[in-house]
Structure formats: C-alpha cells, structure tokens
C-alpha cells in the first residue's frame, strides 16, 4: 500500500474526530507503519483461493420471527446523554437524516 492510500485528516473528518496538526502527523506515521506491516499479505500466493468476507464456512445463522424480551425504558434512558418529554433520548439538534 502506498502512502497516499490513507489520509488521516480525511478519516478523522469522517469519524468526527478533531485532531491537532501534531496528532495528525503522528497518526499518519503510525497508521502507515501498521498498513505496511499488513501489506506483507500481498506477497502471499492466493491463486485458486475464492475471495471471502469470512474466515469460516458457516452460513445461514438465522432466527425464527418470534418476539422476545425487550429492555425497560428506564434502563435505556439511563444510558442516554439526556431525556426529552420523559420518553425520548435527547440529543443536540440534527437536521435531515440520511433516511
């Protein structure tokens, strides 16, 4: 993998992380080092090996459409940053979701 393949500034923006210029430079070096280590995999001969997203051959781990236990609202809201109207999670104002 070449250096230009990873841009910490861009990744940080996507991840909503605020980095100082020093941090950005530091992480850029570290991540490049990690990626070049992983890059050794490129030297493996994978001729005849089917690409896969999973290491195991397991498929169809599926459940029946039967309802089960839900969590008490109190418990759910206890983990929220704040509560609105006693029943909703309260978060900073958002406009326009992707859906």
């Amino acid at each position: 993998m070449s250096e230009s393949d990873i841009q910490v500034a861009h990744i940080a923006k996507l991840a909503r992380l605020q980095l100082t210029p020093e941090e950005e430079a530091e992480f850029q070096t570290e991540i490049e080092a990690i990626l070049s280590y992983v890059d050794k995999l490129q030297n493996l001969n994978v001729d005849g090996v089917e690409p896969t997203a999973h290491a195991t051959q397991i498929t169809n781990v599926i459940r029946d459409d039967v309802s089960g236990k839900t969590q008490d609202r109190e418990k759910t809201l206890a983990n929220a940053p704040d509560v609105a109207d006693e029943v909703l999670l309260k978060v900073p104002a958002v406009l326009g979701g992707a859906h």
Binding site: V87, L88, L89, K90, V91, P92, A93, L95, G97, H99
Partner: peptide
C-alpha cells in the same frame, strides 16, 4: 435495518428507537 424516529424541537432532537 430501519433507523429510529427523530423529532426535531428546534434547540434539540428527541429520538425514539
């Protein structure tokens, strides 16, 4: 999977999951 329902109240947003 669908997302939750947001209710926008001007200064904040309320979410129902």
């Amino acid at each position: 999977e669908d997302v939750g329902k947001s209710t926008h109240a001007g200064t904040y947003t309320g979410v129902d999951y």
